[in-house]
Design a protein around this nucleic acid. Structure first.
Lengths: 149, 149
DNA sequence: ATCATATATTTGTACATACAAATGTTGTCT
DNA sequence: AGACAACATTTGTATGTACAAATATATGAT
């Protein structure tokens, strides 16, 4: 991305500062593209993320703790996010019988079905976004990102 | 960053998908580090961004349009963000006399002073975050990020 | 059994973000 | 001048995010 053009700065930025801004701009762009792809299904990218985690659980239910641990962007309020998924009929929530402090959250059949379509849409969008990259470049990018602590 | 560890997934992710998640994780981490550095000054990273743009204007004031154009993350509501800066005494807002539709937003002396300290704090935090990188690696990273459209 | 502590979730508050609609101002066309 | 479109900002609504406090349940020590 052309950082200087996007933030309309005339003077060139110091390399490290440019990298940091660049990373944020790219991530914002990813967010944009993904939310756009998900718009037809009425879910946010965080909600999509949760649906994928639920699917990854196979038949065992997830509790809120598990969900927030596994989410890409830690949600400080997973309760309300799950509320939205319930409203849409994509997930179910029951009190865990063995430990009544916990809740059991499951993907519904409707949720699983919608998720298959979302997956396709998001995957296509990501493919378009990243089509410039050769596999080698993707390896390099990942290796460089690994350096951040 | 160790993507698989952070999102606690056992199966390795496809390279492209891993890159996308990696970029988002890194950007989230940057956001965390920057907000932490700004916490003592009571401003968000977006507010900090606006303060820097105001300084870049030298003595000519900025209007809201200019601000949202130049911000790293486009704010859909720059009005309310500037409100916060007014409350803190870091910026001033007056109606533009030549075109009463516009507003003129300026950095106050107090804002300029606080900004100098914030700059130091943020710069230090970013330096710590990116200390692993050689200049060459930063170049490579920027070049790879340039590929995104 | 009771109390303190730890665990799991929910609720409250403030702020941030996205999008649409409303307001006020300016310039243009007739 | 009056009507109308374009411009710049503000306001409203819904949702998302961060952090702290509140609630409910379980566990362990005495």
């Amino acid at each position: 991305m052309d950082v200087e053009k996007i933030i309309r700065t005339s003077s060139p930025l110091p390399l490290r500062q440019r990298s940091v801004i660049h990373l944020v701009l790219v991530s914002n762009r990813i967010g944009e593209v993904v939310s756009q792809a998900l718009k037809p299904y009425g879910v946010s990218s965080q909600q999509f993320n949760v649906l994928r985690i639920l699917r990854g659980q196979k038949d065992s239910p997830a509790n809120l703790n598990t969900l927030s641990e596994r989410m890409v962007s830690r949600m400080s309020n997973t309760t309300r996010l799950v509320d939205k998924l319930l409203e849409k009929g994509y997930a179910s929530r029951t009190v865990c019988p063995s430990n009544r402090r916990k809740v059991e959250i499951r993907l519904t059949e409707e949720g699983a079905e919608a998720l298959r379509e979302m997956d396709r849409a998001v995957n296509d969008a990501e493919a378009r976004l990243m089509e410039q990259y050769t596999p080698t470049q993707l390896e390099q990018l990942n290796a460089l990102l690994d350096l951040i602590h």
